[in-house]
Design a protein around this nucleic acid. Structure first.
Lengths: 216, 216
DNA sequence: CCAAACAAGATTGTCAACAATTTTGTTCGC
DNA sequence: GCGAACAAAATTGTTGACAATCTTGTTTGG
């Protein structure tokens, strides 16, 4: 069964189309509100229209594309208000995950988080906002992962996918990384201290600050 | 354009299949873990297989159906552990909604909630657990609605759909409605008092109690 | 008698053509 | 010139047939 061994080889057309299209949207290659014509996409990715359709339906229910009956699909544009509302949901869900993680992390996992913290400090000191943004994303992902809360992780990944564009804009804002850094370090410290309530507070403080930054 | 006017008439095949299948699962007509063969469903609902496939893909990403490559679809069974994890997510998200609702409700909306509370009291006094369960669901839905938090509402509705079976079991447990009632009345009171923090605490207390009840 | 290879049946995945709908450009009447 | 009716092009929705895959029951060799 050489199927699920190498993704890309045994991968079926729909899965492939879904993955490629999703990546393209997340990379920002598709302009916001760009029309997604099924025929063009089918040719572009070398699959049939049926596969593209299936992928579009799935991406719609993930909130990445918008579909209107008989009118086609577009890349969904997330307004600032929506981004705020989404981040409010992130705030409570990541708070939940972080609290659970604080109660469950191993010493090795704490070390991993602290290493990430060190790398983030360096990225800010070196003035590399994109590296920092990358590490930022990674830190949040790890904390989610350590929580063991599969349902919340799934919801959060869905929400995060909708915020790619706003994340980019935020990362490149001067002064933003410095403030963000302190909040992240506080999250790491409180997890290292295994203090669920303090972590939840730290996560909430961090994302409240993100919400304020989004509204400019 | 007599299209979106009457749903059911101008409704397209895929939408129709999605609605029917979703309703059937939510009503519990499909046994848990039951196989969902595309051909059978297509004949049953009088649509083509392609429409059924599209519906199944959508239901999968809503967590109601499980699909395995080349092996078909089944009604997803939610274990007790998963139900607990889902309820934990509900806890934080409904807490968010309730807090927002407390800050935004009109007097008319408060009256509506209080009327629901009265009806719930009556249902418990009359010993009608199913009516109570119905009102319970309605109360939660209204509070969500009043929050104006579209993103959270969407997530919560997705989560709630996965819990239908457990909700039923819980409603019929002797003594459960009485305890639940007090918690619900507390939620209504704190919203009426426009106290966001108190509401959030009340919602959390309520759903913590639900989690305890789930674990029996 | 048991295990592995094999073959038949069932089911899902994919494809290309057709039908229905919407959008856009054009013409006609005022 | 302007607006409404109309026609053509583009695009999505649907259909049935075909290919790939998996499951199940049978056979064969040990």
């Amino acid at each position: 069964m050489p199927n699920q061994a190498r993704p890309g080889t045994g991968e079926q057309a729909r899965q492939l189309a879904l993955g490629q299209l999703r990546e393209a949207i997340l990379r920002g290659e598709m302009a916001p509100a760009q029309r997604l014509v099924e025929n063009e996409l089918a040719e572009q990715f070398g699959v049939t229209r049926a596969s593209i359709r299936a992928a579009l339906i799935e991406l719609e229910s993930q909130g990445l594309v918008e579909r209107i009956r008989n009118r086609g699909s577009r890349v969904r544009v997330v307004t600032v208000e929506e981004a705020v509302a989404i981040t409010e949901c992130r705030l409570v869900l990541e708070g939940l995950c972080a609290a659970k993680a604080a109660a469950a992390v191993t010493d090795a996992q704490v070390t991993e988080l602290e290493d990430l913290g060190t790398a983030m400090r360096k990225a800010v000191a070196d003035g590399e906002p994109l590296t920092y943004s990358e590490l930022n994303h990674e830190l949040h992902a790890r904390i989610r992962e350590f929580s063991g809360q599969a349902t919340a992780v799934e919801l959060l990944e869905r929400l995060n996918a909708q915020l790619v564009r706003h994340r980019f804009q935020l990362a490149l804002r001067p002064g933003r990384p410095q403030q963000s850094l302190n909040e992240h370090l506080a999250m790491i410290e409180t997890i290292a201290a295994r203090d669920p309530q303090a972590v939840e507070a730290a996560v909430r403080a961090h994302l409240t600050s993100v919400i304020e930054a989004l509204r400019d």
